[in-house]
Simulated scan of single mutants.
Amino acid sequence: MTVKYRLSGSTLGLLAVAVALSACTSPDDPSNEAQPDDLQLLVSNEERDGSFGPQALFEGTLVVSEEDCVLAEGTDGTTYNIEFPVGAAQDPEDASIIKLEIADLVIGEDVALGGGYSAAGNNDAALATMPESCRQPETFHLYTTE
């Protein structure tokens, strides 16, 4: 049995627009990926208002691991735990946004953050809240956004 379809001019026009728009975004762009609604965030128990703190600079991208943990990938390719200030949470309207009191950060976009680095042994209590498979040798403690 053969089924034939006829597409009207307006249907073909809409199809052409849809194909053109889909070509505008890269499928490999992490900001295009739907994020789970329950990402694992490493959140400090310290209040940080963004006005002072360690001044080490992190430049890179927020990424999501296979275990749904938010990590920081530096421009040199090194992956770090990222410890967010108290109150950090996923935006309920857009799961790719991490809401902080001082700014909103978007997973997959480049960031420049101020804070400090520590080796895993210096923050074992905080890391205990993260799945072991997510833990990295170093943690970046976010204090300010650039």
Rank of each mutant, 00 (worst) to 15 (best):
A126H: 05
D37R: 10
S10W: 04
F140M: 03
A95D: 11
A18Q: 08
L71N: 03
Y5G: 06
A89M: 10
Q35M: 15
L105K: 04
M1D: 14
F52D: 15
E73H: 05
D104G: 09
T144Y: 02
P92T: 14
A126W: 00
V64W: 09
V70S: 07
V106H: 09
G121D: 15
Q40Y: 08
A34R: 12
D68E: 14
T144K: 07
S65T: 15
V106A: 12
C69E: 01
L12M: 13
Y143G: 08
G87Y: 03
D104Y: 06
N123T: 07
A16K: 12
T2I: 14
G13P: 01
V3H: 11
G60R: 02
E47P: 04
L41F: 04
G13V: 01
L7K: 09
V70Y: 02
G87W: 00
Q55C: 08
I107S: 05
L142H: 01
N81T: 05
L39N: 06
E93I: 00
E73G: 02
T75Y: 00
A128Y: 01
A88C: 00
A128K: 09
D38P: 00
D29G: 02
R6S: 10
E109R: 13
A89H: 15
E138S: 07
I82N: 06
A125I: 12
S133W: 00
M1F: 10
P36Y: 02
E138P: 00
N32P: 01
L42T: 00
T25Q: 05
P92M: 07
N45R: 09
D28H: 09
V63L: 03
A20S: 10
Q35S: 07
F52W: 11
S8A: 09
N81E: 08
T144L: 05
L127E: 08
L14G: 10
A56W: 09
L57G: 01
G77P: 01
N123R: 11
A23P: 02
A18R: 06
E146Y: 13
G115I: 04
V19L: 15
I98H: 03
P36S: 13
D94G: 08
A88E: 00
A126V: 03
L62C: 08
E59K: 13
E93L: 10
T25C: 06
V43H: 00
K99R: 15
R135S: 03
A16V: 07
E33G: 08
L21T: 06
I107K: 05
L142E: 02
C134V: 07
S65D: 09
S96A: 15
E66I: 02
E109K: 12
D29L: 02
E83L: 15
N123H: 10
T2Q: 14
S31A: 14
D104Q: 14
D38A: 13
L42Y: 04
M1T: 14
L105C: 04
E66N: 14
D104V: 06
E93V: 04
